[in-house]
Computed example of a mutant assay.
Amino acid sequence: MTPPERLAGLLGDWRTMRVIRHRNGPTARFYGISIWTPEGRALRCTEQGTLTQDGTSFEAHRETLWRATPKTLEVAFADGRPFHTIDGPAAHHDCAPDTYVLYYDWRNWPRWTVRWSVTGPRKDYRALTRYLRV
Results as ranks from 00 to 15, higher is better:
Leu132Asp: 15
Lys71Phe: 10
Arg62Asn: 15
Ser117Cys: 06
Asn24Ile: 07
Phe77Gln: 00
Thr16Cys: 12
Val101His: 01
Gly55Glu: 11
Ala91Val: 11
Asp13Trp: 04
Lys71Tyr: 06
Leu102Arg: 04
Arg15Lys: 04
Phe58Asn: 04
Ile20Cys: 06
His84Arg: 04
Trp112Tyr: 02
His93Arg: 01
Leu11Gly: 03
Leu132Gly: 13
Thr16Ile: 00
His92Pro: 01
Asp124Met: 08
Arg29Gln: 13
Thr56Asn: 10
Asn24Met: 13
Thr46Leu: 12
Leu102Tyr: 09
Tyr125Met: 03
Val75Arg: 02
Leu43Met: 05
Asn24Thr: 14
Thr69Lys: 09
His61Arg: 07
His22Glu: 12
Pro3Ala: 11
Glu63Ile: 00
Arg6Cys: 05
Arg111Lys: 14
Asp79Cys: 02
Gly120Ser: 11
Pro38Lys: 12
Ile33Gly: 07
Asp105Glu: 09
Thr16His: 09
Arg107His: 15
Ala60Leu: 03
Asn108Glu: 10
Ser57Gln: 07
Leu128Pro: 01
Asp105Trp: 03
His93Val: 08
Leu102Ile: 15
Trp109Glu: 11
Glu74Val: 12
Val114Ser: 00
Ala42Arg: 06
Gly32Tyr: 06
Val134Leu: 10
Arg15Pro: 00
Asn24Glu: 15
Tyr100Ala: 09
Arg15His: 02
Phe30Met: 02
Leu11His: 14
Ala76Arg: 13
Thr46Phe: 00
Ser117Pro: 00
Arg15Gly: 03
Trp116Phe: 14
Leu128Asn: 12
Ala60Tyr: 06
Tyr131Arg: 03
Pro82Val: 06
His92Lys: 10
Trp116Met: 04
Tyr31Trp: 13
Arg122Asp: 14
Ile20Pro: 02
Cys45Arg: 05
Gly88Trp: 00
Leu7Asp: 03
Leu10Lys: 14
Ala127Tyr: 01
Val114His: 00
Arg44Ser: 06
Thr37Phe: 00
Ala8Gln: 09
Leu51Trp: 08
His61Val: 09
Arg130Gln: 07
Thr72Asn: 13
Thr64Pro: 00
Thr99Ile: 08
Thr2Pro: 05
Gly55Asn: 07
Thr129Glu: 09
Glu5Phe: 01
Leu128Asp: 01
Arg62His: 15
Trp106Val: 08
Arg111Thr: 13
Val118Ala: 05
